[in-house]
Design a protein around this nucleic acid. Structure first.
Lengths: 188, 188
DNA sequence: CCACAAGGAAACCGAACGGTATACTTTTGA
DNA sequence: TCAAAAGTATACCGTTCGGTTTCCTTGTGG
């Protein structure tokens, strides 16, 4: 694989640290060290810590969505099946060693102001996931795809919190079982 | 009402600030100022910021549970009805001006280490809520009260996240509608 | 080949952090 | 009543923060 650019090194280091230890708790010096670059290089690529946080969240969004859709869109599966497989994708995620909840939920815990750029990005992320599942529902022929997507997303968020805050790694399968009720209700 | 002790003043000020702006982002000086006490008094009552955080979370737990149970346990309601009223209590909470999500979810976003005392306290809180709803389910005659409580709690967490991160204040009523499905399933 | 951008190491900046110490005033209970 | 306890105000401590600057080295493309 091609060696990553300095910018990528920085973003990936920041992502790990922000995710595991939080945004305010992570200092620039720590990121610089983990990225293996000089402070000057870091500030050549990002004007401030705030800008780096935003770039990191955008990268996270990109990585999450590509991984998520790849797991959901297994070959030879119907859209209806894929609606339920959303929870299998979650389950895979929860079992990972470095699972510390949803980075966007975590970020919006630290940046609660509605006008904060980080908070806005978190809301955008949730909207993108909603739109994706809504599309799946639409393709499956659901009558009110928006409602089903909102319901399934509520289950997703609930599962993430139980997996993280309660350290309950079975939450995804519980949510799947619950989700199936609403999928069947919407697609009799 | 009796005037609050210095200790209470400090804890309430800390609660507001930690809740709205986060734990790492809130400095001792800000808490001291809001509480209207001197720094010495603050450190007479709490050995460190960490100790104050823990005391604050414990107070929050106490306030949350007393308010929550009060809202749920309306007179002349059956345990079955109370199971659904959990979501009405949530709804009231979401409509409050100063709603910034669940303080314990927010805290565990900042303290992800399983051994961290704050994280442990968050997990304990979730366990207490689980036990309370489990008791309600048991009194209602549910066959597997533990399972129903876990399901309803998943809906609760999901609603909280949607209400906060997505700024969707209708989440509680959505969760209620979804919860009723499982309540009816458990109590035919 | 070499000019010029990019990177590295480290000193440095002012501000804010958590926490302590000092000196004085107020509250309060036996 | 009066000394101990608790409070205030403020200066202070070392550390860390986000961010800048300086000087030197290392690519790298025309």
């Amino acid at each position: 694989m091609a060696k990553p650019s300095k910018r990528e090194q920085i973003v990936y280091a920041a992502m790990d640290l922000f995710y595991q230890e939080g945004f305010h708790a992570t200092g620039i010096e720590k990121i610089r060290e983990k990225a293996g670059v000089s402070k000057k290089t870091l500030y050549n690529h990002f004007r401030s810590k705030d800008e780096l946080m935003l770039a990191t969240l955008r990268k996270r969004e990109e990585l999450f969505m590509s991984g998520f859709t790849r797991k959901v869109e297994q070959p030879d599966t119907s859209s209806r099946e894929r609606l339920a497989m959303v929870f299998d994708a979650l389950d895979e995620w929860f079992q990972e060693k470095g699972f510390y909840g949803c980075m966007f939920i975590n970020a919006s815990a630290e940046f609660s102001d509605l006008d904060d750029p980080c908070y806005k990005l978190c809301a955008e992320h949730k909207q993108l996931v909603h739109d994706y599942i809504k599309d799946l529902a639409e393709q499956a022929g659901v009558g009110d795809p928006d409602e089903l997507s909102t319901q399934l997303n509520l289950l997703i968020e609930g599962a993430i919190v139980q997996a993280h805050t309660c350290n309950d790694k079975t939450a995804a399968m519980r949510a799947k079982k619950m989700g199936k009720v609403f999928i069947e209700q919407a697609l009799p």
